[in-house]
């Protein structure tokens, strides 16, 4: 049955703005994004919101609902009581363009800083042969829909904007882990993860995992394994000694 819900939506441009109150109709089965669209249609035609698939697969409608990063299209209205006021704000970590639309170019810049998949010399595309078990781990990370809510919620840059230069955020540290675990990638990802992409800033408080709409275990399966790989490379004297004694090469050796 429909009811009138109380909404507070942040409205403004280029950072300046305020929370605005609305009373808006809500019908059974609707999600927050539906209600935002109803606001656009009935009360605030210039309300800006980024959206696309309405199925939780495009990662466009990331916003903060009652202070928590969520996808607007996946936040069911039935999970709120009829009495409560629902506050909707843009993602806090990124600059605002207008209303709920943020400028997420930080993420694209960080993505460009990571060298792409680098196969060994002499292996042409089409000649890669790998077992399913060898690529399974990385495949979990490919579920990412790039909603950037993990980077938004991460306190390293959310609470400390000055760290944006040094820290790539969970989404891209996960990308580095994905490539480092790839059987055919030969690029040195471990040193660069620590030195250039700020893996050491992560204090594994797991908010990225908590907000991931694809339920990727970012911390347990990407960030911590990557931290352990960096320990192998940089901080573990036994591994260093073992590498010397057994003459292990640092270069990864992709064989089928």
């Amino acid at each position: 049955m429909g009811y009138k819900a109380k909404f507070r939506v942040w409205r403004g441009e280029a950072g300046e703005g305020a929370l605005e109150d609305f009373v808006v109709e809500v019908n059974e089965g609707e999600v927050v994004l539906d209600v935002i669209h109803r606001l656009q249609a009935t009360q605030a035609p210039d309300l800006a919101v980024r959206w696309n698939c309405k199925a939780g697969k495009c990662g466009s409608c990331s916003m903060e609902i009652n202070g928590k990063p969520r996808l607007g299209c996946m936040a069911r209205m039935s999970t709120f009581t009829e009495e409560e006021t629902i506050t909707v704000t843009p993602m806090r970590t990124f600059p605002v363009i207008k209303d709920l639309v943020t400028d997420v170019s930080f993420n694209y810049e960080k993505a460009r800083e990571i060298p792409s998949f680098t196969p060994p010399k002499g292996v042409a595309p089409g000649e890669y042969r790998m077992q399913q078990v060898d690529v399974e781990r990385s495949q979990e990370f490919r579920k990412c829909i790039e909603c950037f809510m993990c980077n938004n919620v991460c306190h390293v840059i959310r609470d400390h904007e000055e760290n944006k230069q040094a820290f790539a955020g969970p989404r891209f540290l996960m990308r580095i882990a994905e490539l480092d675990m790839h059987p055919y990638d030969v690029e040195d990802r471990q040193n660069s993860a620590q030195d250039e992409h700020g893996l050491g800033y992560c204090n594994i408080t797991k908010c990225c995992t908590e907000v991931c709409p694809e339920h990727i275990k970012i911390t347990d399966n990407a960030l911590i394994p990557m931290k352990e790989r960096v320990v192998d490379r940089r901080y573990d004297p036994l591994v260093w000694l073992g590498n010397k004694i057994f003459r292990r090469t640092k270069e990864k050796t992709p064989k089928a």
Binding site: W10, G12, A14, G15, E16, G67, T89, P90, R92
Partner: peptide, 17 residues
């Protein structure tokens, strides 16, 4: 050039839980 800034929200959190 338009200023690019975060939303000016002073509250430490808007979480209600």
């Amino acid at each position: 050039t338009p200023r690019r800034q975060r939303a000016d929200i002073k509250a430490r959190t808007l979480r209600t839980d």
